[in-house]
Nucleic acid binder design. Structure first.
Length: 588
RNA sequence: GGGGGUGUAGCUCAACCGGCUAGAGCGCUGCCCUGUCACGGCAGAGGUUGCGGGUUCGAGCCCCGUCACUCCCGCCA
């Protein structure tokens, strides 16, 4: 017979009188000398159990030994709580179980921290005892909602005729992109597998095979440095389709997101999602993943700057750079120290400095540089910036890229500092028309912005020969609250175009053959037009639940230095293992 | 690779200008308590101030180094 008849979250008034059995962990224990109460907890909830010496003396005797986190089973009758003793905070708060039989299934040491959401615990302690951390309602809720998202995604894609296909975890290293995690081959001395950064090539091959609607919830590995929203292994909802164009992807994903937001948060998203081109996003918000929960934008003052005396502005504008500014509404309250901090902030991001002007109640501008501007300049500035009393204008003058990459983050910094409330809980959008290529100063060559299999826009193919940097790609990102939640592209399916791309990227025929020969060969055998997208499941979960870190959506995440504090990995291996793999220990 | 923050009792934190016999809350242990649910009362245990070195009459506090965690830049097709 099963040890329990119910879970700790389900008993209600209508169960009163039933004899039931519960199992779970002891939460708080309240010993009144005569009467003992405990909160019995499992992942479904909490139920109060009462031990009464007058009614069931044996169970009462055993209950004296109970301590937090003991695993127990109890048998007893569900009873209505005496009036005035119900607990409205608990779904089970109208009833309690009067224990007739108590069995301690397993005692527990005192836990290193209390299993409650209210108790703050530093992250390294949580990670070391992750199995205890995962007992907390906070983490149980996160993992439950993560599961709901995957379930909704699978159900939705299944209904849309998609087929989940698994692809290899041991695969070929490709030097493009992120650093690979390598797995040495025992059979082939000196050769290595790589863990996949994504199933990119395999899903394209599945298109060639005729699996025209593929998806997979799969792990991806990238050996790069971590962030709050980046882990060395993360899970993608990976999708690829044949005979489609960008619009089909947007429609499919908008349908998926509608169901996810509805299913998890009971929220109706307005569809279709807004779109910004890469150009619009970067010039208005200084980011290719703009956070549209806040509306103030970068204002382009380059033309105005050409008319002013102030040398830094005028010369930057005349030499082809940009002068842009943001209006930090009501930012006049910032002290000089605050502004100095903001200046340091943009400098750390690569700006040469930060100019500022306060527009005062009196209608006067206050700023160390105000003397370099004519009254007409200032009037025009007020007009362009829509400045009102108590506003603070923050300027950066530099190359376009620097202006965007400094004012973009500054915009968010100012939002945070001013405590501006978001207009909405969720701002989703597509960023489209990414550039196909960018120039890598480090490698002194063109590199693909997305990946080398991304198709250029049809109308931009002609640009590939003359002005390749101007060519736009059929690539798109899904952005939620300023975080990239997914991205994809329509792929190249023609061998010729693919060859031209490789040439542009400085990958010669021989290199291409060695690295991607199997894909090029496959494309000779009837490759349909295709494209797809991958959504980050961990990030999606984080964003939906409003969490600060992706780690709170992963059962067993890594620390910032990619270690696991619980298993203490990575760890040393034996000489024998190394020998079998034909490896020598690296030197420190 | 670089910049910032943190590290003191099991947990979360405090300790003013370098004077401390290093405190508090929670937790823990024991005793008391029949309607609690952040139960209550009394008593108690618990510290290599991350680690190593230095300065000083004296270091949790200052200096140098190092380790761990964390946020960010670079990196992440």
């Amino acid at each position: 017979m099963s040890l329990r008849t119910h879970t700790c979250g389900e008993l209600r008034k209508n169960n009163v009188g039933e004899t039931i059995a519960l199992c779970g962990w002891v939460g708080s224990r309240r010993d009144h000398g005569g009467l003992v109460f405990i909160d019995l907890r499992d992942r479904y909830g909490v139920t109060q159990v009462v031990f009464n010496p007058k009614v069931h003396p044996q169970a009462y005797e055993v209950s004296k030994d109970l301590r937090p986190e003991f695993v127990i089973s109890i048998k007893g009758q569900v009873s209505e709580r005496p009036s005035g003793t119900t607990n409205s905070k608990l779904p089970t708060g109208e009833i309690e179980v009067s224990a007739e039989v108590l069995e301690i299934l397993n005692p527990s040491q005192t836990p290193p921290f209390e299993i409650q959401d209210e108790v703050e615990v530093s992250e390294d302690i949580r990670l070391k005892y992750r199995y205890l951390d995962l007992r907390r309602p906070f983490m149980q809720r996160n993992l439950l909602n993560r599961y709901r998202i995957s379930k909704i995604a699978r159900d939705y894609l299944d209904k849309q005729n998609f087929l989940e296909v698994e692809t290899p975890m041991l695969t070929k290293s490709t030097p493009e992109g992120a650093r690979d995690y390598l797995v040495p081959s025992r059979i082939f001395p000196g050769k290595f597998f790589a863990l996949p950064q994504s199933p990119q090539l395999f899903k394209q091959l599945l298109m060639v095979s005729g699996y025209d609607r593929y998806y997979q919830l799969t792990r991806c590995f990238r050996d790069e440095d971590l962030r709050a929203d980046r882990q060395p292994e993360h899970t993608q909802i990976d999708i690829e389709m044949s005979f489609i164009d960008e619009e089909d992807v947007f429609k499919l994903i908008e349908g998926l997101l509608s169901e996810v937001f509805k299913g998890v948060l009971n929220l109706e998203l307005k569809m279709p999602l807004p779109r910004l081109t890469y150009e619009e996003a970067t010039s208005r918000f200084g980011s290719d993943k703009p956070d549209l929960r806040y509306d103030f934008k970068l204002v382009d003052l380059t033309n105005w700057a050409k008319t002013v005396e102030f040398k830094i502005f005028r010369e930057t504008a005349e030499k082809g750079g940009k002068v842009k500014a943001i209006n930090a509404k009501k930012g006049a309250s910032f002290s000089l120290k605050d502004i100095e901090d903001l200046t340091e902030f943009v400098k750390s991001l690569g700006a040469k400095g930060l100019a500022w002007m306060k527009y005062e109640e009196s209608g006067e501008w206050k700023s160390p540089i105000v003397k370099f501007f004519l009254t007409t300049n200032l009037a025009e500035l007020k007009n362009q910036m829509k400045a009102e009393p108590e506003d603070l204008i923050l300027f950066v003058a530099d190359k376009k890229e620097v202006v965007h990459s400094t004012l973009g983050p500054l915009r968010l910094k100012v939002v945070e500092k001013l405590g501006i409330k978001p207009k909405t809980d969720f701002a989703l959008l597509w960023v489209v028309d990414f550039p196909l290529l960018e120039y890598s100063e480090e490698e002194k060559k063109f590199v693909a912005v997305h990946h080398p299999f991304t198709s250029p826009k049809k109308e931009d193919i002609a640009l590939l020969d003359k002005e390749p940097l101007k060519a736009r790609a059929k690539a798109y990102d899904l952005v939620i609250n300023g975080t990239e939640a997914g991205g994809g592209s329509i792929r190249i399916h023609s061998q010729d175009l693919q060859k031209r791309m490789f040439n542009l990227l400085g990958i010669n025929d021989q290199d291409a053959q060695v690295k991607f020969g199997f894909l090029l060969e496959a494309f000779k055998h009837g490759a349909p037009p295709h494209g797809g997208i991958a959504l980050g499941l961990d990030r999606l979960t984080m964003l939906l639940l409003g969490l600060k870190s992706i780690r709170d959506t992963i059962a067993f995440p890594k620390t910032q230095s990619s270690s696991c504090l619980m298993t203490e990995s990575p760890s040393e291996v034996s000489e024998r293992q190394l020998k079998e793999l034909h490896l020598n220990k690296g030197r420190e």
